[in-house]
């Protein structure tokens, strides 16, 4: 369905709940999440697909939400950092990040976690290399990488 050039109604689910937004075709999923839906856990760092801080899951796949137009998400299921803990219980990856001290400033953390959440759905017992591959597109300027890799591996062990 071709839409635009003006604003369009877009319906998708966010963290399991239906959401309807009105957005211009050029509006990114990242800006829609942060500014329209007030889900500010997803961070804007480069806004041009080079750092991974804005990683969210679209139909289970990790994507850079700054490189995804909201209008392309019609009917899709979007998961963000706000949606992965259930009933007040942290997701195993979130717990593993705390236990392994896998963040410093925490700005890249939501994106790192979402990349590993996607990995664990495909591979419940990842090796260190699997985790490295999963977060190879997520920059961390504080250099928490060694602990991020440890967290990813240990989250796999917790899940299984």
């Amino acid at each position: 369905m071709l839409r635009g050039p003006g604003e369009a109604d877009i319906a998708f689910t966010v963290n399991g709940a239906p959401a309807k937004v009105r957005a211009a075709p050029r509006r990114t999923l990242l800006d829609t999440l942060r500014e329209t839906l007030a889900l500010t856990g997803t961070k804007k760092v480069c806004d041009e697909g080079t750092c991974g801080a804005c990683t969210v899951l679209v139909d289970g796949r990790p994507v850079y939400s700054c490189m995804t137009l909201a209008i392309t998400c019609e009917g899709k299921s979007i998961e963000t950092i706000e949606g992965i803990s259930k009933d007040g219980e942290l997701h195993p990856v979130q717990r593993a990040f705390i236990d392994a001290d896998a963040f410093q400033c925490g700005f890249c953390t939501p994106g790192q976690i979402m990349s590993i959440v996607a990995l664990l759905r495909e591979n419940s017992a990842p090796t260190e290399d699997d985790v490295r591959r999963a977060v190879a597109g997520n920059l961390c300027r504080c250099g928490a990488y060694p602990n991020i890799v440890k967290a990813g591996v240990s989250a796999g062990k917790r899940k299984s």
Binding site: E35, L39, T40, I81, S85, F103
Partner: peptide, 21 residues
């Protein structure tokens, strides 16, 4: 010790300057 603000940082609830609207 685990970071006392870890929960805020891993859930996306930590509010950074960028998140002030």
């Amino acid at each position: 010790r685990r970071r006392v603000d870890g929960q805020q940082r891993v859930t996306g609830r930590a509010r950074y300057t960028q998140d002030v609207y």
